[in-house]
Amino acid sequence: MTDGLITMKNVSVTYPGGNVALQDVNLTLHKGTICGLVGINGAGKSTLFKAILGFETPSNGEIRIAGNTVKKALKRNIVAYVPQTEDIDWDFPILVEDVVMTGRYGHMGVLRLAKTKDKMAVNEALERVDMLSYRKRQIGELSGGQKKRVFVARALAQSAQIMLLDEPFTGIDIKTEESLITLFRDLSANGTLVFVSTHNLGSVPRFCDEVALLNRTILAHGPVETTYSQNNLIKTFGGKLRHHQLFGHVLHDDADTRGVTVLTDCERPLVLYGEQGGQKIVRMPEQDTSHESESPPTPQEDKEEKPTEGGF
């Protein structure tokens, strides 16, 4: 069972108050994959990440990371993590680049003196999230999305084999989402395991190789093509999903009985098409509509409407 980069065996996590957040979780994830983690609020996604990081100790079961215990894996700097919410003091006198530099500490000596290599890694990480020009800002002087990008950069700077990202897309604009997705692809191409929880159901087929569906326990896990089906999703979300189905007789007049199903948890919907409401995932086009076509009047029209300026 040590072939996976992360192996969870019968893992249960109970919070001190008695909430059972995870029960009998079995999950094996391999290097070089992007795995999406999907589930309702309170399904235990964040708890699953915290268990992998050793923040919550499983009451039962075993977690192995690259064959090591969690503690050893952290020591060896294998896991990087971007939390869902940052519980920090935003007035702390620390600049963006200093924050990202803390991601390098595991690679440094006892004194944590930054070498050229570390400075380059910080620059590169900031560049990847398009935050290089903000490097000298105090951390609290950023917008919510920019803060999030800085923490992604901090995780990147760690150059870990495993990246855990807890809902990285919330509060982030579409352009940044696209660049994050490109980033995940690059990372996985270099052998990193990227494990991402998200509520953007429609995004999952666009960037994930695998998907894990969670509700206290793993309901299904496997390649997106087979596992990310309507049945599995309905099992995961129960009635909590916005769900629209349009069948052949509504769509067109011929004998075609195929239908369209639109599933959405909050943001980007998942569209399925085919018999019985759809077996096939309809991939949203890469260049999303929201990029260009939505931008109202074109600049030329704008100019033509104000010819009076030179008249005075």
């Binding site: 952290l74 020591k75 896991v79 993590y81 920090i88 803390t102 500490y105 595991g106 944590r112």
Partner: peptide, 21 residues
């Protein structure tokens, strides 16, 4: 000797844990 480690912990204790301080 340890001011940077203390800084990392005071700034973000959870992150300090993930980098195994």
């Amino acid at each position: 000797l340890k001011w940077r480690d203390f800084m990392a912990i005071f700034f973000d204790e959870n992150h300090a844990r993930t980098i195994a301080l």
